[in-house]
Each structure stands twice: as C-alpha cells, then as structure tokens.
Write a protein that binds this DNA or RNA. Structure first.
Lengths: 162, 162
DNA sequence: TTTATTGCAAAACCTTTGCATGTAT
DNA sequence: ATACATGCAAAGGTTTTGCAATAAA
C-alpha cells in the first residue's frame, strides 16, 4: 500500500492533497506496469519530494530492481503529460520531478545540501500578474526559485557526496 | 567604437548603465584578444540583450569570423566569473547570457517568439526576503521567469524558424 | 620570451529514440 | 492475441576538456 509523507504542511485554505494511485495510471491510459508503479510509489514514499531520473535509477539499483534509465525517462515524461508529476529545472542542470497535487507553489533550494522547501505567496503571484498586464503579456506560467543556505545543523554540503 | 542599444528602459531610481569595454577585460586579468573583444561588442551592439553560445557562434559564422564554439563557451564562462555577464537558464534548455549592469532584474519570456523583457518589482523582492526569513534560510539569490505570450503583431512563433 | 589563449577533436553529461523482446489486458 | 512497454545500445544536444599550435604582453 502506498502512503504519503509530506515534510511541508500545506495551507488548509489551498485545498487538500490527493494521493496518486495505480488507478491514476489507468485514467491516463497507461498500463499499470511494474516500473510505473514503483516510480509512483517512490514519489509517494520518499522523504525527498523532488527526484531526478538519476535519483530514481540509483534507488532502484540499490534495491536490485533493474529498470533501465530510458524507461525512467519515458515514464517521467508520460507522468508529466498525464498531470501526475510536475517537472522543474533547478540550477543543478538536471530536471527534477515532484507529484502534482494541483497546487502551484515555488521553491526555496539550499545551495549546500540541496534541501528543497516549497512556498506560496499570494502577493508574489499578484505582482506577477500586474507586471504581465502592464506589459501586455498573457501569462502562461512562471518559475521562481530562491537559492539560499538552509542553516540546518545537519546541512553540511551533503551535495558533494554525489 | 562600441555602443549600447537598450530596448528596455531602466528606472532612473535604480542607477545608471555602464558600458563594458576592453578595459574591463584587463581589469579582470584577461588579455584583450579578438574573440573576447568581438563577443563583448556583440553584447553591446546586438538588439538582442540575451545571447546563447550558439547565437554568438552563428553570428560569427555569418560574418566569416571563425571563432571556435569551445572558445565562445570558455569566454562566456570567464566573463561570468569576472562579473561582466550574467547567465540565465530559461526553459529553452540552453544557457543565455546578458551584460551585467549590476542591477538585478527578472525576466518575462514570450513562449512563442522568445522575446525577453526585464522587470524589477520591489514588492516581489521583499516578499522573497520574508519567505526566506520565516524559514530560516539565508538568501543567496533567486531566479524568476514569467512565461507568457507577448501578443505583439510581429510575434508569430519565430522560434520555429530554426 | 613567457604565459595565456585558441582551435580542433574528443569526451562528458543529460536526455531521447530505434528496434527487437517482453508484458498487461 | 493485440497493443503497448521495456531494455539495450546508439544517437542527440549542450557544454567541457586535453593538447598542440598561436597570439598577447
């Protein structure tokens, strides 16, 4: 059984979290294959909400599951198109994905350890609309990341570990 | 002689624009070589403020100047480290650079034609500080892009041309 | 002359694709 | 049985690097 562990509490006012299940696969016209179910369950259960193809691949290797990298890339792309995952490009140079719970938010990323937290600021959203309106652009989306040091005692450049 | 053409007016209140010259190269401990001078002058004179390595390479080829792509990449990196250019990663997947005039701003990018405009919103900046403070992060920087349609009459999916 | 810089080709990275094999329905 | 998924290896696109040849100081 899949379970959800969220480190970051969502505001009540912005709706509730829906768990993604193998049923979501069928709804998206995707067969419930082992790689797909495993990937989905990784996102549900991992304490990292944001995973790259490589992260997933390494996790599988460490569990002696062998799923090709190509499959992982293909599944991630399909999940994104199906609205199950959202893709982000942080400065790392590689794409990371997270479950799409339908609630837009932005990210604050620790430059030292890679720790990611989410935030949503109504005022920032509003100002963006204003900027776009004043220049006669029609907003399709946006991407905002704050790069920072998280200053947690266990934040010690873990990123170097590989 | 190099000249500056800015499509986007800067607010008076945020300082004045300084032109980058071959002297800036020396100050950065870089020899004033032809490729470096040409690249600098391209940024000064182009009506596109945001250029990728490829953009520069193509421009040079069209002028029968032959500068290797590797050199362009190396020079862009050096210029970034010297504080002459700033690098951005828009969704295109390739890095683009622009002159660093020391004035932070964010970008609104047209999804159809790739047209880029700059903006600076005090309120957005402030709210980011607040978000970081409330989570005990120390901000190092941020990256904000709004993706939109620019709705200009000459915006006709020019991006497809190549 | 000395040291930095260039060009070329090769390699490194991340990601995508072709194709024969395998699996869910 | 049929259509869809997978794995592998090869190829794509962007960026970096090694090294001998070249140019700036």
């Amino acid at each position: 059984m899949l379970s959800v562990k969220l480190r970051i509490p969502y505001k009540k006012t912005r709706g509730s979290i829906l768990m993604k299940t193998p049923d979501d696969l069928k709804k998206a016209g995707l067969k419930a294959t082992l790689p797909r179910i495993k990937i989905l369950s990784l996102f549900e259960s991992s304490d990292q909400r944001h995973l790259s193809a490589e992260d997933i691949y390494k996790q599988f290797v460490s569990e002696d599951m062998d799923v090709g990298l190509a499959t992982i890339y293909r599944v991630l792309t399909q999940f994104e198109q199906a609205g199950i995952l959202v893709r982000h490009h942080f400065e790392s140079g590689k794409a990371v994905y997270e479950l799409d719970h339908g609630e837009h938010h932005d990210h604050i990323v620790c430059n030292q350890c890679g720790h990611v937290e989410e935030f949503y600021d109504e005022e920032i959203e509003k100002r963006q609309l204003k900027v776009a309106r004043s220049r006669n652009f029609k907003i399709l989306g946006h991407s905002l990341q704050i790069y920072a040091d998280c200053q947690e005692e266990n934040c010690s450049r873990k990123i170097e570990e590989n």
